[in-house]
Every structure is written in structure tokens, then in C-alpha cells.
Design a protein around this nucleic acid. Structure first.
Lengths: 222, 222
DNA sequence: CAAGTATTCAATAGAGTACTTGAATAGTAT
DNA sequence: ATACTATTCAAGTACTCTATTGAATACTTG
């Protein structure tokens, strides 16, 4: 094998991995998988894709080694094949957010629906917490919550929002936050809470912004 | 805009970045750009693509914000738009290597001497340089060396390795590096040095990885 | 201004991708 | 066994991507 061919074949393999990531539906499936193992029909339901289509996307991901599957009874469960895959996804997201003006445009277009999802500012939140007017929920996965969170916030990962609804008093307004200004978990949470008839808003920014601003947090003090 | 659409559009933007990375030729172009700024015809020459084709790939990369360009006189010079792009490429490479048996097969097919060419890690190299135990050589072409190289490394392009052998003390171990983890120049150099009876190893990674890790470099300070 | 060079544009053929539909497979429950 | 369920397979259509070719653009030099 010549050097040139070797190099080209090697790059072709890297390109295969990138190609597996080059579809919005597959990225969305992987975001769900990042939260834990899921069956095909569960993934089809949350993603809104047909079962056959979901299955085919999952097989593409499996062929490049990004996900693994196991069969148990009737169902096939898929999961991400390792933490380095999460790191790759984060790296992709971070480059995309940093570089693409298009994303800012999208976020701004979305946020023009101010009256529906107007965020609450940090100072206002602090005051309302003191006054006992709001319940603050952290919708990130439990591990991230454990590593550090807003003081007084309770952890309700997005996946458990429906089942843990009773933790939230019905009279208080709910404030949701997650990883950062672009993290869609908090948007989702607010939308779903409102569907259930609660009063909900999103915190401007996320945990990192809050911490950097010197506002009160609780950490695992590792 | 609904939350679902918003989320989907956001993932579609991330997917665009991944799609830009999903072609072997574009990845190869980016590896060259990781060494420094390059004109279109220089990139066309090293990649073996036609100029028009090269230009079109570069424009795709520019549209997703992965590279930037500037025009000077007749030529247009492209460069990576930031170090986070290098981090993304490394992350992609690392996931691909970890997951894809296909890549191992390729590497073994080409580099049958693979286990004889154990790489040295960055930290270990730094220590051994301090202790005066090793000579570090940069086997990339002179222009790439000039644009930036590991502090203290001497430039011996692969083509001149035989003729400049006397530059290397016979007692010290020689460490060779080039463009990146898969740049074959360093493998070649190590193999040839060993044939001449020298003790030689390859640096894990290459110049871009070293620089991004914040380790000491010397640049042309343009 | 004319000639030359580097890059980009435009049009095209051929290959690959996404999603749908309906059927096939493998396992469970009755 | 039979009915049922979750998943996968196979085929078809509409759409997109790559690389090639030749022309157009923008800049420099004589």
C-alpha cells in the first residue's frame, strides 16, 4: 500500500464517523442516548421519527461504532459506546456555537416569542428565592447536578419531569435552568411545565454563568 | 417557532458542521491547514486534488465557519478559524481510532513495524529535553517548520534525513514528529534512523496538538 | 492597456442519502 | 401452534454531494 493511499483511507474512516454525525436526527437520537440506554420505539417516540427510520439511523450509528446495542426479549436497547463519544459531541457543539452566526440567528428568532419564554435574570431570581416566591429546578442529568448547582435548586432531570411533577408546589412559579444559554433542556422543561398548567420561566444563562457571577452555589467539594 | 422546530434547527446546524467534516479530502485539507496558512494552489498540490475541486471544498469549510480566508494579491490564503477546530478534529480522530477496527486494520497493514515504533508522550518528552537526554527533530518541510515548531526542535525534512545525519549526536535518543498523530513522515523518519543504528522514537501527536496543549513553541511571529 | 495567473463560478453526470411503505424475522404470550 | 409485538429488511422516489470541465472574475505585471 502506498503512503498516499494509506493516508487517504485513514481519512476516509474519520470521514465515516463525521458522516454519521452529519444528520440532525441522528444527533438528536444521540442526545437522548447520552442520558442512558433506550429502546428503538422509545427513541422513535421522543424523536418523532418512524420506527423504521429510527432503526435505520441507529444502525448507521452502530456501523461506525458510535453506539452499541443489546437485545433483551423483544426489545433492542441502544446506548452510546463510551464517554469519548460525549466528548466528541460536546466538541462539535462548541465549535458550532462559536463559529456559526446562523445559530445565534436561530436563537434570536426563537426568543422573539418573549412573552412565552421570557427568561428571568439572576438578580431577580435571587430576590424571588429570598421572598419564597419561586421553586428552582435543575433539569440537567443527576451527575452534573451533583458536581455543582445553584444553592437551593432541586434536581429534576428532564426525563423525570413528568413523573416528579408532584415535587413542585402548584402555587409557586417554577424557574428552570440547565447548562448554559443555549442548552435546550430548560426550554423544553418550561414548555412542558406550561402544558401542565404551571407557571414557569427559564433562568437567563445556566449553571456556569451563575457560578462565574459569584452567586451562591452548592458543590460536591471534591 | 415551536420548541421542537427550534431544537431540530439547532441540531441541523451542528449537523452542518459534521457534514463539512464528513469527506476525506476536506479532512486532509484541514490537516494541512492545521500546520498554518496555505494558498489554494498549495493545498491543491499537496492534496492531489484539482484546483477547482480544492476551491469548492474550501468554500464548504468556510461556509460552516471552520476556516477563514484572506486575499493578498493574486492569492487567497486559508487558515483554520481557531484552536477549538483542532480540538474537534482530534476528538473525531480519537473516537474513530477507539471504535473502528477498520482503522487498526489499515494501520497494521501499512505499519507492520507499529509496535517497534512506540510513541513518546508530550510530558515525558518535555522532561527528557530538560534532562538533555534527547534530540528533537521536526521532519516537516522547511516552510512548515518556519511557521512554528516545538521549542528547541531542529528541522530536518525527511528528504534530507540521510544527508543531515551528522547534525544528530550519536549518543542521544532522537525524537521525531511531524504534522499530527497520523502523519507518516515521523514513522518513516524513525524507521530510517533505526536502520542507521540510532535510537529513535516518534512523538505522540504532532505540532498542532503540542501547541494547543500549551506546550512551548517557537513561531515566526508574523 | 494587454497578457498572464490564481481563484471562483456554472453546468453536468454519476453516486450516495433520507424517508416511506410493506414484508420478513425473532421473540413473547395465550 | 397461533396471535401478537418490536425490530429489521428491501425497494422505490426525491433529493443532495463529488468531481470534472470550461468559462468568468479579479488582480498583477510589463
Amino acid at each position: 500500500m502506498s503512503i498516499v493511499n494509506f493516508k487517504h483511507d485513514l481519512f476516509a474512516q474519520f470521514a465515516r464517523v463525521a458522516k454519521a454525525l452529519s444528520n440532525a436526527n441522528r444527533l438528536e437520537l444521540m442526545e437522548f442516548l447520552a442520558q442512558g440506554e433506550r429502546s428503538v420505539d422509545a427513541l422513535a417516540e421522543v424523536s418523532g421519527l418512524s420506527v423504521a427510520n429510527t432503526s435505520q439511523h441507529l444502525q448507521q450509528l452502530r456501523q461506525t461504532g458510535l453506539v452499541l446495542s443489546r437485545k433483551q426479549g423483544l426489545k433492542v436497547y441502544y446506548r452510546l459506546s463510551g464517554d469519548d463519544v460525549i466528548a466528541l459531541l460536546d466538541s462539535l457543539r462548541s465549535v458550532a456555537e462559536a463559529r456559526m452566526a446562523e445559530i445565534d440567528r436561530l436563537i434570536n428568532a426563537y426568543l422573539t416569542i418573549k412573552d412565552k419564554l421570557e427568561p428571568i435574570a439572576s438578580e431577580e431570581l435571587l430576590q424571588r428565592v429570598k421572598d419564597g416566591l419561586v421553586t428552582v429546578i435543575d433539569v440537567r442529568p443527576a451527575e452534573e447536578y451533583k458536581a455543582g448547582h445553584l444553592k437551593g435548586a432541586i434536581n429534576i432531570p428532564l426525563t423525570e419531569l413528568d413523573s416528579q411533577l408532584e415535587k413542585l408546589g402548584k402555587e409557586k412559579e417554577v424557574i428552570a435552568y440547565c447548562r448554559g444559554p443555549h442548552c435546550v433542556l430548560a426550554y423544553d422543561a418550561v414548555a412542558r411545565l406550561r402544558k401542565k398548567g404551571r407557571t414557569a420561566r427559564r433562568l437567563e444563562g445556566g449553571y456556569p454563568e451563575w457560578r462565574v457571577a459569584g452567586l451562591p452555589v452548592e458543590t460536591s467539594d471534591k
